[in-house]
């Protein structure tokens, strides 16, 4: 890896992101719709959350793992959702760079596959982290506006805030690696988007991002426990609502995320190296 080449390629990626605000707005559209429509309409338990904690039914706590209402529970889930969906474009950009010939130029330069992959990975993971915090801010703001909003019930410590950033970053790194691997391997944009859709929805629907945990059947809880989106989302929930309902401490979930991200990174590196090697 050559730092100057990597930095120059990362600068290029960041310039492209900055010059395409439409893409940022598009990646925010889905979470915003979820927050202002789905979350508002689905916020069961909201009338009970106004009660002092001691008077709330215990079932509510088991249902939402300590969160005061569904919206608060689900806001943390939306951050995980953004961590996945905001990384989509990194793979699509690789395919468009192939179609426009830009990747051909980079591949013909002395830049290594690691430089090329690394620049896209870093630039592609910064954006989801920024968007995740925008989503969090919006969820809290909605509550202040008198709508259903995110109510954080325990004070978030500095370590907790750090854990949250690391969790979102690891989730983004993992999915950016996955989508980059697809982007470098696939030639057609249609194929890419079809595959991405085939991945995203199952990932989301087997995670604890949307479902109230207490309402999930045991087998789905079992699957969701290993889902990287669940792992990231639980780190947020532990820091927002306390750890009373979670079997492990936040760092255990972070270890799980590190394993996922490392595995995906390794696979993606191999596939990218293969894709950028001279065609024999």
């Amino acid at each position: 890896m050559n730092v100057r080449r990597w930095a120059a390629l990362t600068r290029r990626e960041l310039l492209k992101i900055a010059r395409n605000p439409a893409a940022i707005v598009t990646s925010l559209m889905l979470p915003i719709l979820y927050l202002v429509l789905f979350g508002q309409g689905f916020n069961f338990g909201s009338s009970l959350s106004a009660l002092p904690p001691a008077q709330r039914p215990a079932a509510l706590h088991t249902l939402f793992l300590g969160a005061p209402d569904y919206f608060s529970y689900f806001s943390a889930g939306m951050v995980g959702f953004v961590g996945v969906t905001a990384t989509l474009f990194v793979g699509a950009n690789v395919i468009f760079d192939k179609l426009f010939g830009t990747l051909k130029r980079t591949a013909a330069s002395p830049a290594s596959a690691t430089d090329i992959f690394g620049a896209r990975l870093v630039a592609g993971s910064i954006q989801p982290v920024a968007l995740a915090f925008l989503v969090l801010g919006l969820a809290i703001l909605l509550g202040d506006l008198g709508l259903s909003g995110l109510h954080i019930t325990v004070g978030v410590s500095v370590l907790g805030a750090f854990e949250i950033v690391v969790a979102i970053l690891l989730l983004s790194l993992m999915f950016a690696s996955l989508f980059l691997a697809l982007g470098f391997t696939i030639e057609q944009p249609q194929t890419y988007f079809a595959l991405v859709n085939a991945i995203n929805l199952p990932v989301l629907l087997t995670s604890a991002a949307l479902y109230p945990w207490g309402a999930m059947p045991a087998w789905l809880q079992g699957v969701a426990s290993y889902n990287p989106v669940t792992l990231a989302v639980e780190v947020l929930r532990i820091n927002f609502f306390g750890d009373a309902f979670y079997p492990y401490a936040a760092w255990v979930y972070l270890l799980g995320l590190i394993a996922w991200a490392a595995a995906m990174f390794a696979i993606a590196t191999v596939l990218t190296n293969r894709a950028l090697a001279p065609k024999v």
């Binding site: 310039l15 492209k16 010059r19 395409n20 010939g101 830009t102 051909k104 130029r105």
Partner: peptide, 9 residues
Amino acid sequence: FQESTADQD
């Protein structure tokens, strides 16, 4: 190259 490979953005 034959084709344009510069980054349009």
